[in-house]
Design a protein around this nucleic acid. Sequence first.
DNA 1: CTTGACCTTAGAGTTTACTCCAAGGTTTAT
DNA 2: ATAAACCTTGGAGTAAACTCTAAGGTCAAG
Lengths: 144, 144
Amino acid sequence: MYRIGELAKQFDVNTDTLRYYEKEGLLVPSSVASNGYRMYSSADAKTLGVILRAKAIGFSLSDIKTLLSIEVDKANKECLDVKLVVDDKLDQVNAKIDELQTFQRSLKRLSDACCGGHESAQDCTILQALESESFTILSECHHD
Amino acid sequence: MYRIGELAKQFDVNTDTLRYYEKEGLLVPSSVASNGYRMYSSADAKTLGVILRAKAIGFSLSDIKTLLSIEVDKANKECLDVKLVVDDKLDQVNAKIDELQTFQRSLKRLSDACCGGHESAQDCTILQALESESFTILSECHHD
DNA sequence: CTTGACCTTAGAGTTTACTCCAAGGTTTAT
DNA sequence: ATAAACCTTGGAGTAAACTCTAAGGTCAAG
């Protein structure tokens, strides 16, 4: 059994984070001592490990909650249930990457077009592009 | 001169958004009518265009504020000043893409390893991976 | 017996970019 | 005259995942 500070130190998180996870129903300490202190079992510690690993690969706390609820009722769940969560997140991540790559292309085009020297910004191609109403086309142009 | 609702309709934004941009110092209407109505000039409209285009390519409102402050003092600024903002944002976008691609690889590996069928989740490879302390290595493993 | 390190709760603050609401004033049309 | 469609202000609410503060209780060491 660990007190909150011990568990927090072990996993290098803030004690407030653990209280927050409890409030969110992700990690409820398996018992409470007579002095009111939260007491975490090694199963709790294992669960925290799962939470942090899931976070590290991009799951939101809400996703993780779903995953943990499947975990506790494994016997009555199917692989499909688990895979759906993962594939859903994968779709979100892919969509976000696509969006950022669109940003990236536009920014790179702006950057490459600009001399970046000590010349006056009066004629800066970047500012001109941002002022130009036809610039939006750039971010949607797919025939590079 | 446009009233706030006219400008909002023209650019398909909420009037509250325009008031918010004003509060943030991004777009201050060039005059206020005697009845207290905000009056936007066509220069203001052009600035709004710049703001929305900059937003569309991934700049935050704070970035845009910097860009606009350069814009109004173009004569005393250099191309370098502008390019630094763009390159800085490009670095941030690239970093975010890298992070998401790490997520993507981990998620894809999880997904691919799981049958996704109607089998019991008891032996699901995804759940096993999340429970395994050595799993973190996967997200950092570069020798595919 | 007091100091310091620990723990408790409830609640507020952070960030970003809005969005909504209430209560009221203005303008235009019928 | 009155309704509809505008506009004003100030302030609260939203999402996500914490982080911090205040005021106080607990515990071990010196």
